[in-house]
Design a protein around this nucleic acid. Sequence first.
DNA 1: TTGAAAGCGCTAACAA
DNA 2: TTGTTAGCGCTTTCAA
Lengths: 329, 329
Amino acid sequence: MKDKINMKTIAGRAGVSVATVSRVINQNGRFSAETEARVRHVMEEMNYHPNTIAKSLREQHSRIIGVIVPDITNAHFAGLVLEIEKILFEHAYSTVICNTNESDALEKKHIDALLSQRVSGIIFISGKRHYSLHDVTVVYVDRRPDNYDTDSDCVVVESDNESGGYLAAECLIRKGCKDITMLYARTMDHNQKMRLTGYQKALAAHDLAVRALEADSVSVEAAAAKIKAYSRAGNRLDGLVCTTDLLAIGAMIGLRELGIGVPEDVKITGYDDSALATLYHPTITSVHQPVRDMARKTVSLLLDHMDGRQKESARYVLPVYLAERETTT
Amino acid sequence: MKDKINMKTIAGRAGVSVATVSRVINQNGRFSAETEARVRHVMEEMNYHPNTIAKSLREQHSRIIGVIVPDITNAHFAGLVLEIEKILFEHAYSTVICNTNESDALEKKHIDALLSQRVSGIIFISGKRHYSLHDVTVVYVDRRPDNYDTDSDCVVVESDNESGGYLAAECLIRKGCKDITMLYARTMDHNQKMRLTGYQKALAAHDLAVRALEADSVSVEAAAAKIKAYSRAGNRLDGLVCTTDLLAIGAMIGLRELGIGVPEDVKITGYDDSALATLYHPTITSVHQPVRDMARKTVSLLLDHMDGRQKESARYVLPVYLAERETTT
DNA sequence: TTGAAAGCGCTAACAA
DNA sequence: TTGTTAGCGCTTTCAA
């Protein structure tokens, strides 16, 4: 009844040995054209699917890659995962998705499971650092691991967050803004930090004063509340650099309630160039990250390191650009 | 150097046989407390991860579930996949994600790969029908398979699209709209059809005339273009039921360009209750689908059918509700 | 060009 | 309570 057809079945029907069947499947040569045709025909006929599990056991690796991500629901992460999965599949690798919901405990469990599955590699989009992963190839993407310094023995792919912050601030300066503030979220990860640094450098380059607002979370409500409090306190503001599109939207909502117009009174930039940025009204000027390139680089590094068994450290910083839209008109 | 530690290593160090180690790991009883403690200690000490591949080979299944989805970047699908993955992991199953990009050829390749991996089950969010999957448990969710009829030998979980269309239309009627049109996309899948049916029933129940507009694609641009053409042609319109939040936004953008106000002149409903719905200005009244419940039902059906080996057909239709917001004020 | 057979790490039937 | 061992389906070495 069940899946009892295996290589032996095929071999029997084709009148050859399992070794030969294996050879034609893997194109390892050492078989005649007729033999190949016969074997292929039988496989077709019986709708045979070579058992990857047995192959993996024999070959000591699974052609499965684990992707650790905080939340696939986040559009930026989803874009990254989509591209990664696509490229991996082209290379005959499967992608196991692991949502951690930012929980260290869950992440640990997922890693244990992946290790048990003898995955060929793990891609971290989580930003957590893992020192104990010596027997598996690892690449960090989008969020560099905790305690990262350049000497660190790990492979990192990121986009140029500092440059992104700089570009956004510079745009506002170019548009004539004088009182430019940055709005970030309390969950101050490294990417946000670098964006802040970029913003600071841009303002310093033009002798403008630096200010920063911290929203309680990455949410519309938190951003709206923060910006309202700031404005009501009488602070001057004509430009706002946000570390996220969501924060930018929250800020606009808050400002709108105060009767402050965007972009007439305050110009705003977001970050990530998410779908929201072009959909929102007004459309949002936003820093675009090269998601596809990041995915491509990540996978190619992973594959290289898996092949070469080389575990050298490396860091790749991919360029971003600013997509200018209505909020900075 | 490599992963040479296996059950035998553990057994050796603990001074027991591999059978005992296996029993401890799988809690199959027939070992003493001291033995268990000793074995556990050694496993801990050596950072041993039981080889799932070998286990799978032996047990003839992989505890891996394949999820076929058109595009993980779609927020609705991402939500579904997130929940599915979460629940599966709680049951010690891994989730391999397969983006098909709506391509039949890619979908076929993914299925072959999953079959080779001897996955324990496949969840389809793709709407494609697969007649040849007899040796693996299958559940369709969100999009029923092509050529579906109730007798069909397959398991389907969906939300009540007809009711959703009805609810949306009824809301507009309640608010006093008289000229209510439906806006859908050319890619007329079954879900959209049912939403249209619901809309039609609601209007019929109130003796109102039914109209439908077909956008060229599920995009803001297509929706804006369509609604502008419709309005300019002099058609009366004070209510619009859209089969997607994206279409609703596109419609609003189109109407805005014509100087038509939402909700003053035209009231609008979206569908999916996506993040956009609460973020957009005005906030969008939208039909909410019970994504978590759909995921939960899907997984529980999958697990049941995998256990029981029963392959009976079934169809579950989960209730939706209308989240009323500013566009229907 | 082909085949026989060992062995990957594990589970479970059987024996003790 | 514990151990021995066959065998899951495949790849690969060695022989023919």
